[in-house]
């Protein structure tokens, strides 16, 4: 199987709504190369978390990692969205937050809104389709991690 690509999300804020730009920034590291283990930290400051990991159990404060990856073993398991929100809002984690595993382009906007800024996607991802999907909804009721307040929270 082709090695997945890494896509960077760029917010383009406007007055009332925001669009998102997507650009391919590289390839994913081949699996099992640098990771020590789940919850382990690799040499280059990457931390990998799975759905059952909890932010309060991290070996050191989130800010010490350059990249935190949250893995989705199956696309309809939503735990990673809450982990991302906790890291961004409660732990003020400012490094790179990457979504890996089974994620689909129709989920990209909500991943972004929860604070992910890079997505690991299949090598054959259609970038134009991704950009359409991620910008399908630009008006939001809720506060977003990057944008702050929505209309009700």
């Amino acid at each position: 199987m082709a090695i997945p690509i890494i896509v960077q999300i760029r917010w383009r804020p406007n007055a009332d709504e925001s669009s998102i730009g997507c650009s391919r920034i590289g390839q994913a590291v081949a699996p099992n190369k640098t990771w020590q283990s789940h919850r382990g930290c690799s040499d280059d400051g990457h931390l990998q978390l799975g759905a059952t990991d909890r932010v309060e159990d991290l070996p050191s404060t989130p800010g010490t990692y350059r990249v935190i990856e949250i893995d989705f073993s199956v696309f309809n398991d939503g735990r990673g969205y809450s982990l991302a929100r906790q890291l961004r809002t409660q732990y003020q984690y400012a490094g790179e937050l990457r979504a890996t595993g089974d994620i689909r382009i129709d989920q990209a906007d909500m991943l972004a809104r929860c604070g992910f800024d890079t997505l690991e996607l299949p090598a054959d991802t259609d970038m134009a389709q991704l950009e359409t999907a991620i910008n399908a909804i630009t008006v939001h009721y809720q506060a977003d991690v990057q944008l702050g307040s929505g209309s009700v929270s």
């Binding site: 939503g78 809104r113 929860c114 009700v152």
Partner: peptide, 12 residues
């Protein structure tokens, strides 16, 4: 309004 398309809770 708050629960409509809430980004965190779409995959409960």
């Amino acid at each position: 309004q708050w629960s409509t398309l809430h980004p965190e809770f779409n995959w409960l």
